[in-house]
Design a protein around this nucleic acid. Structure first.
Lengths: 114, 114
DNA sequence: GTTTGATATTGATAAATTGAAATATATTCT
DNA sequence: AGAATATATTTCAATTTATCAATATCAAAC
Protein backbone atom coordinates (compact mmCIF):
# COMPACT_ATOMS: atom_id res chain seq x y z
CA UNK A 1 0.00 0.00 0.00
CA UNK A 2 2.73 2.42 1.02
CA UNK A 3 4.53 1.86 -2.24
CA UNK A 4 1.37 2.54 -4.22
CA UNK A 5 0.59 5.71 -2.26
CA UNK A 6 4.13 6.92 -2.89
CA UNK A 7 3.65 6.68 -6.65
CA UNK A 8 0.25 8.37 -6.53
CA UNK A 9 1.56 11.22 -4.39
CA UNK A 10 4.56 11.64 -6.61
CA UNK A 11 2.23 12.14 -9.58
CA UNK A 12 -0.14 14.44 -7.68
CA UNK A 13 1.88 17.55 -8.35
CA UNK A 14 1.74 19.41 -11.69
CA UNK A 15 5.45 20.24 -11.69
CA UNK A 16 6.40 16.61 -11.13
CA UNK A 17 4.08 15.49 -13.91
CA UNK A 18 5.70 18.05 -16.17
CA UNK A 19 9.11 16.65 -15.30
CA UNK A 20 7.97 13.15 -16.24
CA UNK A 21 6.49 14.35 -19.51
CA UNK A 22 9.72 16.14 -20.44
CA UNK A 23 11.82 13.12 -19.56
CA UNK A 24 9.80 11.12 -22.08
CA UNK A 25 11.71 12.95 -24.77
CA UNK A 26 15.21 12.91 -23.38
CA UNK A 27 17.15 12.81 -20.15
CA UNK A 28 17.69 16.18 -18.54
CA UNK A 29 19.87 17.69 -15.87
CA UNK A 30 18.60 19.74 -12.96
CA UNK A 31 19.41 23.09 -14.46
CA UNK A 32 17.61 22.24 -17.70
CA UNK A 33 14.51 21.27 -15.77
CA UNK A 34 14.82 24.42 -13.72
CA UNK A 35 15.00 26.54 -16.85
CA UNK A 36 11.95 24.86 -18.33
CA UNK A 37 9.80 24.98 -15.21
CA UNK A 38 10.96 28.37 -13.99
CA UNK A 39 11.12 27.39 -10.36
CA UNK A 40 13.97 27.49 -7.84
CA UNK A 41 16.72 24.91 -8.18
CA UNK A 42 16.21 23.33 -4.72
CA UNK A 43 12.55 22.87 -5.56
CA UNK A 44 13.49 20.94 -8.68
CA UNK A 45 15.92 18.78 -6.72
CA UNK A 46 13.23 18.04 -4.16
CA UNK A 47 10.69 17.05 -6.81
CA UNK A 48 13.25 14.77 -8.41
CA UNK A 49 13.94 13.10 -5.10
CA UNK A 50 10.25 12.38 -4.60
CA UNK A 51 9.97 10.98 -8.13
CA UNK A 52 13.05 8.86 -7.57
CA UNK A 53 11.81 7.41 -4.28
CA UNK A 54 8.59 6.45 -6.04
CA UNK A 55 10.58 4.52 -8.63
CA UNK A 56 9.62 6.83 -11.48
CA UNK A 57 12.98 8.38 -12.33
CA UNK A 58 16.60 7.48 -11.97
CA UNK A 59 19.83 9.41 -12.47
CA UNK A 60 23.31 9.06 -13.72
CA UNK A 61 26.11 11.32 -12.61
CA UNK A 62 28.28 12.69 -15.34
CA UNK A 63 30.95 14.91 -13.89
CA UNK A 64 29.31 17.98 -12.49
CA UNK A 65 25.96 17.19 -14.08
CA UNK A 66 23.33 14.76 -12.94
CA UNK A 67 21.24 13.33 -15.76
CA UNK A 68 17.76 12.31 -14.81
CA UNK A 69 15.73 9.87 -16.88
CA UNK A 70 12.65 7.71 -16.54
CA UNK A 71 13.06 4.27 -15.06
CA UNK A 72 12.12 1.14 -16.95
CA UNK A 73 9.80 0.37 -14.07
CA UNK A 74 11.80 -2.43 -12.54
CA UNK A 75 11.58 -1.06 -9.05
CA UNK A 76 7.81 -0.66 -8.91
CA UNK A 77 5.00 -2.18 -10.96
CA UNK A 78 2.84 0.81 -10.12
CA UNK A 79 5.46 3.19 -11.43
CA UNK A 80 5.87 1.06 -14.54
CA UNK A 81 2.17 1.09 -15.35
CA UNK A 82 1.73 4.79 -14.68
CA UNK A 83 4.76 5.68 -16.77
CA UNK A 84 3.28 3.61 -19.57
CA UNK A 85 -0.07 5.35 -19.36
CA UNK A 86 1.53 8.74 -19.13
CA UNK A 87 3.10 8.22 -22.53
CA UNK A 88 -0.33 8.60 -24.05
CA UNK A 89 -1.79 11.07 -21.58
CA UNK A 90 -1.61 14.87 -21.39
CA UNK A 91 -0.26 15.20 -24.90
CA UNK A 92 -2.64 18.01 -25.72
CA UNK A 93 -2.39 19.76 -22.37
CA UNK A 94 -1.46 23.37 -23.16
CA UNK A 95 1.23 23.62 -20.50
CA UNK A 96 2.80 20.34 -21.51
CA UNK A 97 2.65 21.30 -25.17
CA UNK A 98 4.48 24.52 -24.46
CA UNK A 99 7.16 22.75 -22.46
CA UNK A 100 7.75 20.14 -25.16
CA UNK A 101 7.94 22.87 -27.72
CA UNK A 102 10.70 24.78 -25.95
CA UNK A 103 12.55 21.64 -24.92
CA UNK A 104 14.83 21.49 -27.98
CA UNK A 105 15.98 25.03 -27.28
CA UNK A 106 17.00 24.23 -23.75
CA UNK A 107 20.59 23.09 -23.66
CA UNK A 108 22.74 22.87 -20.58
CA UNK A 109 25.65 24.49 -22.32
CA UNK A 110 23.64 27.67 -22.79
CA UNK A 111 22.08 27.67 -19.36
CA UNK A 112 24.52 26.50 -16.75
CA UNK A 113 27.96 27.53 -17.92
CA UNK A 114 28.72 31.14 -17.35
CA UNK B 1 -3.87 18.38 -16.33
CA UNK B 2 -6.22 19.42 -13.57
CA UNK B 3 -8.41 16.41 -14.21
CA UNK B 4 -5.42 14.09 -14.05
CA UNK B 5 -4.13 15.63 -10.82
CA UNK B 6 -7.57 15.23 -9.29
CA UNK B 7 -7.53 11.49 -9.92
CA UNK B 8 -4.00 11.10 -8.60
CA UNK B 9 -4.78 13.07 -5.44
CA UNK B 10 -7.95 11.12 -4.90
CA UNK B 11 -5.93 7.91 -4.93
CA UNK B 12 -3.14 9.33 -2.74
CA UNK B 13 -4.92 8.55 0.50
CA UNK B 14 -4.98 5.04 2.02
CA UNK B 15 -8.57 5.32 3.24
CA UNK B 16 -9.78 6.35 -0.20
CA UNK B 17 -7.90 3.48 -1.82
CA UNK B 18 -9.51 1.13 0.69
CA UNK B 19 -12.93 2.48 -0.26
CA UNK B 20 -12.23 1.79 -3.93
CA UNK B 21 -11.01 -1.71 -3.19
CA UNK B 22 -14.14 -2.48 -1.18
CA UNK B 23 -16.40 -1.11 -3.86
CA UNK B 24 -14.86 -3.59 -6.28
CA UNK B 25 -16.88 -6.26 -4.51
CA UNK B 26 -20.21 -4.51 -4.08
CA UNK B 27 -21.78 -1.12 -3.68
CA UNK B 28 -21.80 0.19 -0.14
CA UNK B 29 -23.54 2.91 1.82
CA UNK B 30 -21.73 5.45 3.99
CA UNK B 31 -22.41 3.69 7.27
CA UNK B 32 -21.09 0.40 5.95
CA UNK B 33 -17.89 2.09 4.84
CA UNK B 34 -17.66 3.84 8.17
CA UNK B 35 -18.00 0.53 10.01
CA UNK B 36 -15.31 -1.07 7.89
CA UNK B 37 -12.83 1.79 8.07
CA UNK B 38 -13.51 2.78 11.67
CA UNK B 39 -13.37 6.48 11.03
CA UNK B 40 -15.90 9.26 11.64
CA UNK B 41 -18.90 9.47 9.32
CA UNK B 42 -18.18 12.99 8.04
CA UNK B 43 -14.69 11.85 7.16
CA UNK B 44 -16.12 9.05 5.05
CA UNK B 45 -18.50 11.45 3.33
CA UNK B 46 -15.65 13.78 2.58
CA UNK B 47 -13.51 11.01 1.09
CA UNK B 48 -16.43 9.91 -1.04
CA UNK B 49 -16.89 13.42 -2.33
CA UNK B 50 -13.26 13.62 -3.37
CA UNK B 51 -13.52 10.24 -5.12
CA UNK B 52 -16.69 11.32 -6.83
CA UNK B 53 -15.24 14.60 -8.10
CA UNK B 54 -12.36 12.62 -9.56
CA UNK B 55 -14.79 10.47 -11.50
CA UNK B 56 -13.93 7.31 -9.58
CA UNK B 57 -17.19 6.64 -7.78
CA UNK B 58 -20.82 7.46 -8.27
CA UNK B 59 -23.87 7.10 -6.06
CA UNK B 60 -27.51 6.26 -6.18
CA UNK B 61 -29.93 7.43 -3.54
CA UNK B 62 -32.27 4.81 -2.21
CA UNK B 63 -34.48 6.28 0.44
CA UNK B 64 -32.42 7.24 3.40
CA UNK B 65 -29.41 5.37 2.13
CA UNK B 66 -26.89 6.45 -0.47
CA UNK B 67 -25.28 3.60 -2.33
CA UNK B 68 -21.82 4.27 -3.63
CA UNK B 69 -20.28 2.27 -6.43
CA UNK B 70 -17.40 2.51 -8.85
CA UNK B 71 -17.97 4.37 -12.09
CA UNK B 72 -17.55 2.70 -15.44
CA UNK B 73 -15.01 5.39 -16.21
CA UNK B 74 -17.11 7.39 -18.62
CA UNK B 75 -16.35 10.71 -16.96
CA UNK B 76 -12.59 10.42 -16.96
CA UNK B 77 -10.18 8.26 -18.96
CA UNK B 78 -7.66 8.59 -16.15
CA UNK B 79 -10.16 7.30 -13.62
CA UNK B 80 -11.12 4.47 -15.95
CA UNK B 81 -7.55 3.30 -16.39
CA UNK B 82 -6.68 3.56 -12.72
CA UNK B 83 -9.81 1.69 -11.70
CA UNK B 84 -8.86 -1.01 -14.16
CA UNK B 85 -5.35 -1.31 -12.78
CA UNK B 86 -6.57 -1.26 -9.21
CA UNK B 87 -8.56 -4.41 -9.86
CA UNK B 88 -5.28 -6.30 -10.00
CA UNK B 89 -3.34 -4.26 -7.48
CA UNK B 90 -3.14 -4.43 -3.69
CA UNK B 91 -4.82 -7.80 -3.53
CA UNK B 92 -2.30 -9.13 -1.06
CA UNK B 93 -2.02 -5.97 0.99
CA UNK B 94 -2.69 -7.01 4.61
CA UNK B 95 -5.03 -4.13 5.36
CA UNK B 96 -7.01 -4.66 2.19
CA UNK B 97 -7.17 -8.38 2.78
CA UNK B 98 -8.60 -7.83 6.22
CA UNK B 99 -11.22 -5.41 4.92
CA UNK B 100 -12.34 -7.75 2.16
CA UNK B 101 -12.55 -10.55 4.66
CA UNK B 102 -14.92 -8.71 7.00
CA UNK B 103 -16.92 -7.19 4.17
CA UNK B 104 -19.54 -9.97 3.98
CA UNK B 105 -20.28 -9.52 7.67
CA UNK B 106 -20.98 -5.84 7.29
CA UNK B 107 -24.63 -5.27 6.56
CA UNK B 108 -26.40 -1.97 6.84
CA UNK B 109 -29.34 -3.54 8.62
CA UNK B 110 -27.12 -4.53 11.51
CA UNK B 111 -25.16 -1.30 11.64
CA UNK B 112 -27.38 1.66 10.98
CA UNK B 113 -30.83 0.77 12.22
CA UNK B 114 -31.20 1.01 15.91
C1' DG C 1 44.93 23.26 -2.65
C1' DT C 2 41.90 26.85 -4.16
C1' DT C 3 38.25 28.26 -7.07
C1' DT C 4 34.27 27.43 -9.89
C1' DG C 5 29.95 25.61 -10.94
C1' DA C 6 26.05 22.02 -10.66
C1' DT C 7 23.37 19.83 -7.44
C1' DA C 8 21.77 18.51 -2.65
C1' DT C 9 20.36 19.68 1.95
C1' DT C 10 18.55 22.60 5.60
C1' DG C 11 15.41 25.96 7.61
C1' DA C 12 11.50 28.79 7.36
C1' DT C 13 6.88 29.83 5.83
C1' DA C 14 2.49 29.72 3.39
C1' DA C 15 -0.86 26.64 1.52
C1' DA C 16 -3.13 22.28 1.27
C1' DT C 17 -4.80 18.02 3.45
C1' DT C 18 -6.73 14.93 6.99
C1' DG C 19 -9.76 14.05 10.57
C1' DA C 20 -13.13 14.94 14.17
C1' DA C 21 -16.93 17.52 16.52
C1' DA C 22 -20.88 20.15 15.78
C1' DT C 23 -24.47 21.26 12.87
C1' DA C 24 -27.45 21.04 8.77
C1' DT C 25 -30.09 18.53 5.24
C1' DA C 26 -33.20 15.24 3.63
C1' DT C 27 -36.08 11.17 3.63
C1' DT C 28 -39.09 8.00 6.03
C1' DC C 29 -42.40 6.91 9.51
C1' DT C 30 -45.85 8.02 12.79
C1' DA D 1 -46.45 18.40 11.25
C1' DG D 2 -43.01 16.14 14.13
C1' DA D 3 -39.59 12.49 15.26
C1' DA D 4 -36.03 9.48 13.81
C1' DT D 5 -32.20 8.38 11.01
C1' DA D 6 -28.64 8.31 7.15
C1' DT D 7 -25.81 11.44 4.97
C1' DA D 8 -23.76 16.12 3.88
C1' DT D 9 -21.68 20.41 5.23
C1' DT D 10 -19.17 23.48 8.21
C1' DT D 11 -15.54 24.57 11.27
C1' DC D 12 -11.30 23.96 13.34
C1' DA D 13 -6.79 21.77 14.96
C1' DA D 14 -2.93 18.98 13.53
C1' DT D 15 -0.16 17.44 10.01
C1' DT D 16 1.83 17.45 5.54
C1' DT D 17 3.42 19.72 1.31
C1' DA D 18 5.45 23.20 -1.97
C1' DT D 19 8.44 26.73 -2.35
C1' DC D 20 12.37 29.67 -1.71
C1' DA D 21 16.68 31.55 0.51
C1' DA D 22 20.80 30.24 2.52
C1' DT D 23 24.15 26.88 3.00
C1' DA D 24 26.58 22.56 2.13
C1' DT D 25 28.52 19.03 -0.93
C1' DC D 26 31.19 17.48 -4.57
C1' DA D 27 33.57 17.08 -8.93
C1' DA D 28 36.41 19.54 -12.35
C1' DA D 29 39.79 23.05 -13.64
C1' DC D 30 43.36 26.00 -12.69
Amino acid sequence: MKEFIKVMKALSDPNRVKIVKMLQFRSLCVCELQAALQIAQPTVSNHLKILEEAGLVTYQKSGLWVNYSLTNGESSPYAATLLGSLKHWLHEDPEIERLIKVLPEIRREDICRK
